[in-house]
Computed example of a mutant assay.
Amino acid sequence: MISERQKEIIDAAGRILTESGIGGLTTKKLAFEMGFSEAAIYRHFPSKEAIILALLEYLRENMASRLSSLDQSLPVEDRFQAVFASQFAFFTQHPHFVVAVFSDGLWEESDQINQAILALMQTKAGFLRPLIAEGQAKGLFKKDVSAEHLVHLVLGAFRLQMFKWRVSGFNFDLNTAGAQLIQSILTVIKD
């Protein structure tokens, strides 16, 4: 569990990543953003990598908590939509985290960061895979494509939507555009 101060630091790190990319995220810039010394940053995190890892773990835990709390009594299609509605709502409220999750530059930073990003993706896939398999078992979703491959297609479309939102400067309503995308995906994967 991260402290409130650590959460403030990773929020600031996310904002810097959005404005300046991975190269712009320095402890000096982060300390300036937070209004305290670099030494104060190091009291909370031993390195820039530790900040990024904490940010990714926070996102993973937050997503797992949000998705775990979805109403399991809803029909499969409604739960599928709710998974993405939750994601779009979260990123609309916290756009600075989009860059952290969808920044290709992070992949080049370290193996630990790669593993943290992979864990984040696996967490989301872990919610989608059984949901899609349930939809297939109930005859709602296509069965001629494996649940695993459908997850890849869906997450690829989600990633592209988030990338478009980011490069547009967050200049369109992600919730509306996201809901339209999910409806289109449902049209494609329904049996």
Rank of each mutant, 00 (worst) to 15 (best):
E4N: 12
E4M: 06
Q6G: 04
K7Q: 13
K7C: 09
I10Q: 03
I10C: 02
A12T: 12
I16C: 09
T18Y: 14
S20G: 08
I22D: 13
G23C: 04
L25E: 10
T27H: 00
K28R: 12
K28S: 12
L30M: 08
L30I: 07
A31H: 01
A31W: 02
F32G: 04
G35I: 06
G35M: 02
E38M: 01
A39E: 02
K48W: 08
I51S: 06
I52G: 01
L53Y: 04
L53F: 04
A54E: 04
L55C: 09
L56E: 04
L56K: 01
E57M: 05
L59I: 12
L59M: 13
N62W: 03
M63Y: 05
M63G: 06
M63N: 10
S65M: 09
S65F: 07
S68C: 06
L70Y: 05
S73W: 05
L74A: 12
D78C: 02
R79W: 04
Q81P: 00
Q81W: 00
Q87L: 08
Q87R: 10
F88E: 07
F88I: 06
F90A: 12
F91D: 05
Q93K: 13
H94K: 15
H94Q: 14
P95S: 11
P95H: 08
P95V: 13
F102V: 03
S103A: 15
D104L: 11
G105N: 08
W107V: 05
E109M: 12
S110A: 11
S110D: 02
S110H: 05
D111P: 10
D111F: 13
Q112F: 07
N114Y: 02
N114K: 14
N114T: 06
Q115D: 11
I117D: 01
I117K: 12
M121R: 11
M121E: 04
Q122E: 11
Q122Y: 00
K124I: 15
K124F: 07
A125T: 04
L128C: 00
L128E: 04
R129Y: 09
R129Q: 14
L131H: 03
L131W: 00
I132K: 01
A133V: 10
L140G: 04
F141W: 00
D144L: 03
D144F: 10
S146A: 14
A147S: 13
A147D: 14
H149N: 15
H149I: 13
L150Q: 11
L150I: 07
L150K: 01
H152E: 14
L153D: 11
L155I: 13
G156M: 03
A157V: 01
A157D: 08
F158A: 03
L160K: 05
M162Q: 04
M162L: 05
M162W: 01
K164N: 15
K164I: 07
R166I: 08
R166N: 09
G169W: 14
N171W: 00
N175V: 14
A177M: 09
G178T: 11
Q183G: 05
Q183D: 15
S184K: 13
I185K: 09
I185N: 06
L186K: 07
